[in-house]
């Protein structure tokens, strides 16, 4: 679920990050506040907003049901959605930083060599910003795995369906199964440490 959420965050977050880094447009400040908001909002507030949007009375929720796709809340889809929204700001922030560090002269050089904008983005900008993008993905993935509050509110904690590692820990502690909680906590800590180690290595490696 966290991988799927991170993938979604990659596909939507990287183009958004590029827009924020490279283009001026009306509403830019508002957009950058909106995409970063999940980072600072209490997870329950985030979960509540998600419920309002995708719940059975929410606009997206109703459209989803009318399209014959069933409900969203308390399904794995909802868990992915919560993790995605939590991961997105991390991906956008890091990728935006990566894009801002790419000297525009490289893009201009490509322009004088006959390239169009989409080609330049894929062949010049992304390869030169990959450190930032990768760091953002790693952080976003860690955040997606750790997502708890919003997940609980929109996806619940149904064993085998919407239970994530984070909600499973909560469940284990509540049920007095401390050994299980220990193990899961250890696994998540190792993963988080691995992510930080990984980001440190990208930062230090040879420049390209």
């Amino acid at each position: 679920m966290a991988s799927l959420a991170t993938l979604l965050a990659l596909v939507t977050g990287v183009p958004l990050a590029w827009l924020l880094a490279r283009r001026a447009f009306p509403g830019k400040d508002l957009l950058s506040v909106l995409v970063l908001l999940p980072m600072v909002l209490p997870p329950t507030v985030l979960g509540y907003y998600l419920l309002v949007v995708v719940g059975r009375q929410g606009l997206v929720g109703r459209l989803w049901e009318m399209a014959g796709l069933g409900r969203i809340v308390f399904t794995p889809t909802a868990a992915v959605l919560a993790a995605f929204v939590a991961a997105l700001p991390f991906v956008i922030r890091a990728a935006q930083g990566g894009f801002e560090q790419v000297d525009r002269t490289y893009e201009e050089a490509a322009r004088t060599l006959g390239w169009g904008e989409v080609g330049i983005f894929l062949a010049v900008t992304v390869p030169l910003a990959w450190r930032g993008i990768l760091a953002g993905l790693a952080l976003g993935f860690a955040r997606a795995v750790g997502e708890f509050g919003a997940t609980l509110m929109v996806a619940g904690n149904i064993p085998g369906r919407t239970r994530t590692a984070s909600t499973a820990i909560y469940d284990a502690v509540q049920g007095g199964r401390l050994a299980e909680a220990h193990l899961l906590a250890l696994l998540l800590s190792i993963m988080a440490g691995g992510v930080l180690l990984f980001i440190g290595r990208i930062g230090r490696g040879s420049r390209w």
Binding site: D103, T105, E108, A109, R207, W208
Partner: peptide, 14 residues
């Protein structure tokens, strides 16, 4: 259809 040599060359580092 013009060629451009930039001041600091702007060679693609990757």
């Amino acid at each position: 259809g013009l060629g451009y040599v930039f001041q600091h060359h702007a060679l693609f580092p990757h």
